Amino acid sequence: MNRPPAEFGRIPPDPLRTFGTQCLERAGMLADHAEQLARLLVDSDLRGVRSHGTRCLPGYCGSISSRSVNPRPEFRVLKETDVAIHIDGDGSLGYAPMMMATDAAIAKARVKGVGVGAVCNIGHYGSAGHYVRRAMDEGCTAFSVQGAFPQYYRSNQDKRAAHYGNPPICFGLPSETEPPLVLDAATCILADYQRGEEFEALEEMIPAALFKSMGYTAIGTLLGGAFVGMAAQLSREVETRWKGSRNGGLIWVMDIGLFAPAEEFRQGVDEMVRLAREELIPLRGYDEATLPGAVEQRFEEEYSRDGIKLATEHIRSLVELGQELDVPVPWSQ
Rank of each mutant, 00 (worst) to 15 (best):
P4N: 14
E7F: 13
F8Q: 14
G9P: 15
R10L: 10
R10N: 11
L16Y: 04
T21N: 11
Q22D: 07
A34M: 14
A34Q: 13
E35G: 08
D45H: 15
Y60T: 05
S63M: 13
I64S: 01
S65K: 07
N70T: 04
P71T: 12
P71Y: 14
P73T: 04
L78C: 12
D90Q: 04
S92W: 03
A96Y: 07
M99A: 08
A105I: 00
A105F: 01
A109E: 02
R110V: 05
R110L: 08
G117W: 09
G117N: 09
A118W: 03
I122R: 00
S127I: 05
A128D: 00
D137M: 01
D137Y: 02
C140I: 02
A142H: 03
A142W: 00
A142E: 04
A148W: 00
N156Y: 10
N156K: 10
Q157K: 09
D158Q: 08
D158A: 11
A162W: 10
A162F: 06
A162I: 05
H163M: 08
Y164I: 02
Y164K: 01
G165M: 00
P174K: 00
P180A: 05
D184G: 01
D184A: 02
I189F: 07
L190F: 13
D192E: 13
D192K: 13
Y193K: 06
Q194D: 11
R195W: 12
E198R: 14
F199T: 09
E200V: 13
L202Q: 15
E204H: 15
M205S: 12
A209W: 13
M214K: 07
Y216R: 10
T217N: 03
G220A: 05
G220Y: 01
T221F: 08
L222N: 15
A231S: 07
L234E: 14
L234S: 14
T240D: 12
G249D: 03
W252A: 02
D255E: 15
L258K: 09
L258Y: 07
F259L: 05
A262I: 04
G268M: 09
G268T: 03
D270S: 03
E271R: 12
V273P: 05
A276P: 07
L280A: 14
L283A: 13
E288W: 15
P292H: 04
P292Q: 09
Y303V: 06
R305F: 09
R305N: 05
A311G: 09
A311Y: 15
T312K: 11
T312D: 06
H314Q: 03
E320M: 02
E324V: 01
E324Q: 05
L325D: 06
P330H: 05
